[in-house]
Each structure stands twice: as structure tokens, then as C-alpha cells.
């Protein structure tokens, strides 16, 4: 299987291990991630106001690049994934936005958000299948108690993201179980880590990430996994717990025995 791939800026710099291990795991599972050419930064955060047009253009370009290859576009960073999926939804549902984007970019034919955008986790769940992964595991993580941290961007708004149940998601838990580990039940898994407040007010991030990790710890986790570089940074740096936080791809890499 070949998929188009949008790594995003952070994966090229501060989150190289997320990118590299994901590619190697994908290869081991028989998947080729074909990076789309000349991609630009997605913008980092989705511009919520309906009159912000220009700030959504780079996401439109990424979507169009994948569309021209007629392949689903896979993303790995929660933030990029959120921006791309929501921009695609806007193209499909917001006529004003679609018209203005297409006029500005001089698109002929008009681009209306065609093509699929999926997160790496969705790819594992829907395209590969957890049973295949379970069979491919060489080094099962038996005895480990892993807490799945979803954060906000993968799940919300659920109507647009259509990723999983926004309040009781299961995809990362199923992933953890496929690797032979035990998944920890905890409900702060979809609460905010403090996000970009890391820049301006580290106190907020300490309080938010602190309460997230405290819950994971209290529920008996030995490791927390995430798909988001900023979540990882906040939880590691400000979480205030002696609890390792790693990318989900690192666990996969380990379990596949790579």
C-alpha cells in the first residue's frame, strides 16, 4: 500500500524520532509513505474564524497535492492532522470559503476538498488492521501499563474530525493491546495539556499537564503515549511526574522488534 505523507515542520526538527520511527514501522507493515512534494507549514493551528482565508491556503495546497496522486493523505502530527481535516471540511461545506480559495489559486477544475485525510493511527486501524499488527509483533510489551493520551486535536471537534468517540475513544487503547501491553483506563486522556501557552505562561502548562499526568499516574500507568509533539513537550517538561512520555510510534517500533 502506498499513501501520500505530510510530515509537517515539527517532525523535521524537534520531533524527528516521531517521523523516522513511523516510516520504518510503516515499511515493516508493508506500507510506503510517499512524501508529497514541496509541502509548506500547515499553520500549526486551525484558524477558527470563518473570514480567515489566506491562513488556510497552505493546508489547501497539501490537500490538492495528495488529491493529484489519488491517494489518501497520511499525517502524524496531531496539529497538522487537525488543520488539514478541518480545512478539507471547510472546502466541502463552506461555499464562500471554497469559492474564494479557488478564485485566488486559479484552480480549474475547482477543488472542493476531495480525497481522504487520515491520521497514522487511523491508517493502522482502518487500512492495516490491529490484527495484522498483533501478528507482526515480535517483541510483545507484556506487563507494561500504558496510558493513551489523545489530547484535544485528534478528537475535537468530533463532527469534523470523525476520528473516534470524542469522550470515550478506543483507537490508541486497541493499538496498545495489539502490542501486547495493558491499556490504562483514565479520563484525563482527552483534556488539554496547556498547548501553546508554553510560550507565554508556563504556569498554566504546569497546572494542566500536571493534572493530566497525575491522573495517569493514579490510574497505574508506567508510560504515557501521544501523537503530538507539543503535548509530548508539555507533559515531559511541565508534567511534574516521574512518568515517561513517548510517541506511540516509539512503542510500535519497539514491539515490531526493529
Amino acid at each position: 500500500m502506498v499513501f501520500s505523507y505530510y510530515p509537517g515542520c515539527t517532525l523535521r526538527t524537534r520531533a524527528k524520532e516521531l517521523d523516522e520511527k513511523a516510516r520504518k514501522c510503516a515499511e515493516a507493515l508493508g506500507i510506503t509513505l510517499e512524501e508529497i512534494p514541496d509541502w509548506q507549514c500547515c499553520g500549526g493551528c486551525y484558524p477558527v474564524a470563518s473570514d480567515e482565508i489566506a491562513t488556510r491556503l497552505s493546508a489547501v495546497r497539501a490537500l490538492m497535492a495528495a488529491k493529484s496522486e489519488e491517494r489518501p493523505l497520511v499525517t502524524l502530527c496531531s496539529a497538522c492532522h487537525n488543520v488539514l481535516k478541518r480545512t478539507r471540511h471547510d472546502l466541502q461545506t463552506d461555499e464562500t470559503f471554497r469559492d474564494r480559495v479557488n478564485r485566488y489559486m486559479g484552480n480549474d477544475p475547482v477543488y472542493a476538498g476531495e480525497g481522504e485525510v487520515i491520521h497514522f493511527l487511523e491508517m493502522l486501524r482502518d487500512k492495516v488492521g490491529f490484527d495484522t499488527i498483533r501478528a507482526a509483533v515480535k517483541n510483545p510489551l507484556t506487563g507494561r501499563r500504558i496510558a493513551a493520551y489523545y489530547g484535544c486535536l485528534l478528537l475535537r471537534p468530533s463532527g469534523v474530525m470523525a476520528f473516534d468517540d470524542p469522550e470515550n475513544p478506543t483507537v490508541i487503547e486497541d493499538f496498545i493491546r495489539a502490542l501486547g501491553a495493558e491499556s490504562v483506563a483514565w479520563s484525563m486522556r482527552n483534556e488539554c495539556c496547556g498547548s501553546y501557552m508554553a510560550l507565554e505562561d508556563k504556569g498554566i502548562v504546569e497546572r494542566k499537564s500536571g493534572s493530566v499526568l497525575a491522573n495517569a499516574k493514579a490510574q497505574g500507568a508506567d508510560t504515557v503515549i501521544t501523537a503530538c509533539p507539543l503535548c509530548l513537550y508539555n507533559l515531559q517538561k511541565f508534567g511534574g511526574q516521574d512518568l515517561p512520555v513517548v510517541y506511540f510510534t516509539e512503542l510500535l517500533y519497539e514491539a515490531l522488534g526493529l
Binding site: 483514565w186 479520563s187 484525563m188 497525575a214 491522573n215 493514579a218 490510574q219
Partner: peptide, 12 residues
């Protein structure tokens, strides 16, 4: 209490 519960977090 006039208000709504926003989240229940099982902890221990």
C-alpha cells in the same frame, strides 16, 4: 448548585 458538571475524572 446552579451549574453543570463538565467532566468526571475517575482517580483512584
Amino acid at each position: 448548585i446552579k451549574g453543570m458538571v463538565g467532566k468526571v475524572i475517575p482517580q483512584g
